[in-house]
């Protein structure tokens, strides 16, 4: 129960983000969601895209550093307290979040998010147990 995320290591320099999105655009790869973490030296771009394997291969072939990892995607009711409930479940189970970002969606009553935790397997188990809907790639 996980979705594949494409991560790219970028130099913190003008034009690098455009360059990789351009490479993916030319290969007709659609980006569904994206989150950037940056430091003074580098940036890490995390992307949910269709066909992540092909996207990663193309980026590596064009001289970028890209990798694929599985992340947990879940849905919560799009209302106040929706996300807080998920976080409290994780906290009760001593699961730490490395990062989390929202998935762009067309649904009107649900919000989607993606996260990496220090223990993704347990995170998925406790969320399911508490009735949180997890997403698979075909649902997004």
């Amino acid at each position: 129960m996980a979705i594949r995320q494409l991560s790219v290591f970028l130099e913190n320099k003008k034009g690098t983000l455009h360059e990789i999105t351009d490479v993916l655009a030319k290969e007709n790869i659609n980006l569904r969601s994206m989150c950037i973490a940056d430091t003074a030296d580098y940036g890490i771009v995390r992307i949910i895209a269709d066909d992540p394997e092909r996207a990663g291969k193309i980026l590596n072939e064009t001289g970028h550093t890209a990798s694929i990892r599985e992340v947990t995607a879940f849905a919560v009711p799009d209302c106040p307290g929706g996300l807080a409930k998920v976080l409290s479940i994780l906290e009760e189970n001593s699961i730490d979040i490395e990062y989390m970002y929202a998935l762009v969606t067309t649904s009107i009553d649900k919000a989607y998010a993606v996260m990496r935790t220090n223990d993704d397997k347990s995170a998925e188990k406790v969320l399911l147990k508490n009735g949180i809907e997890l997403l698979e790639e075909e649902n997004i």
């Binding site: 290591f9 890490i44 995390r46």
Partner: peptide
């Protein structure tokens, strides 16, 4: 490339 990890904490 093989040491790349997408968590800022790990890097």
């Amino acid at each position: 490339p093989e040491q790349f990890d997408d968590s800022v904490k790990n890097l």
